[in-house]
Design a binder for these strands. Sequence first.
DNA 1: TGGCTTTTTTACCATTTGGTCAAAGTCACG
DNA 2: CGTGACTTTGACCAAATGGTAAAAAAGCCA
Lengths: 212, 212
Amino acid sequence: MEINPETDPAPEPAPKPSRIQKRNRKRILDAALEVFSQHGFRGATLDQIAGEAGLSKPNILYYFSGKEEIHVTLLNALMDTWLAPLREIDPDGTPLDEILRYVHRKLEMSRELPRESRLFANEILQGAPRIGPHLETTLKPLVDDAAAVIQGWVDAGRLAPVNPRHLIFSIWATTQHYADFDAQVQVLTPGEDAQEGAQAFLDTLYRRLLTP
Amino acid sequence: MEINPETDPAPEPAPKPSRIQKRNRKRILDAALEVFSQHGFRGATLDQIAGEAGLSKPNILYYFSGKEEIHVTLLNALMDTWLAPLREIDPDGTPLDEILRYVHRKLEMSRELPRESRLFANEILQGAPRIGPHLETTLKPLVDDAAAVIQGWVDAGRLAPVNPRHLIFSIWATTQHYADFDAQVQVLTPGEDAQEGAQAFLDTLYRRLLTP
DNA sequence: TGGCTTTTTTACCATTTGGTCAAAGTCACG
DNA sequence: CGTGACTTTGACCAAATGGTAAAAAAGCCA
């Protein structure tokens, strides 16, 4: 059977994006991140995004087929960076160091990428309507792996016995809290830099929990 | 100067709510809790709330002056129940027991009042636009008190040294996580009851952190 | 039962919002 | 420079949304 490049081409024609396309798509995504993370999906409007991006609404719809596509694009792109620290846990490293470094990196991301954290939080809060599948296919295997590694460390007596999954949950919760609940944190820790205190606190917390 | 009861009456005429008023206001607030907690303020619509409550939209506006008033009413009512466990920490109790009981109660509330937890999370995520002041006046003094109590325990050597505020943050984060991020938790802990494992994990976590 | 108040509904409105379309403008490149 | 492809815009739309007004209906009570 002869392959006809006309009817069976590469699935994606790979129309290399022009300079302008790259610039504007980036602008739009950045503006959208700002708006979505602050108001959630339904609370955000295309006009807001357009205004923030310095483009007209129809122009935005020239680059993305609709509001939903922008949101999904953001979430998918986010997933990678968001989960990178988890991927970097080294099964051959020193258990306590590996976990503490993970906590450190997550807290750092909370400070440096608060918008991303809130975007994610918003999506999950609302029942993950747009990345539910992605959670199953990307997040779950990754967490399964990490949990197995941690369980291995526990079994080898190199960490105090803990449920790996709940350990991971608690790390997510405690670190992302400083981005997601920033409004509250600010009210309750006036003056001082919350993140600095958090670093010390979380270090102690997990060190005491995990030291065998 | 004569006081004219017509122009200077009691500030609140106290128009005792009728049976119907009580029933319908409750219905509306319950429906609104469902909808707001799932979609956030801007994402929720009066039509949805009306549908959920089994009332017509104009009928809802007969009981509340607008969408915003419903939301604020909910948040204010919530504040009390939400902070009750914190109020119940007994300065004369056994430090570790008091904290562990607090964790326990917060986790319990996460399971039993997930909608309330999400309503709150949504509001804070968006920068607390509608309860910001309330946080200052109600939450802050309460946390200041609790932090002082905990600090006292630490100073007396009855708890391992920790930053009280960050301890409180971490308790909020780890317990509310199971309500707010339920969609994610469900994906990652298939089959088993996450809350049960959480109970054991958090008990260990804080016991190990706080035991002097 | 009659008459008053409270509650509910029906019919609207103005604004916002996601999205379309065709025309106008700009760019890249031979 | 000219021409075809890419980009941007202004003018629109239909649906959704928060909210209003007035009439109809239901309660309440003597």
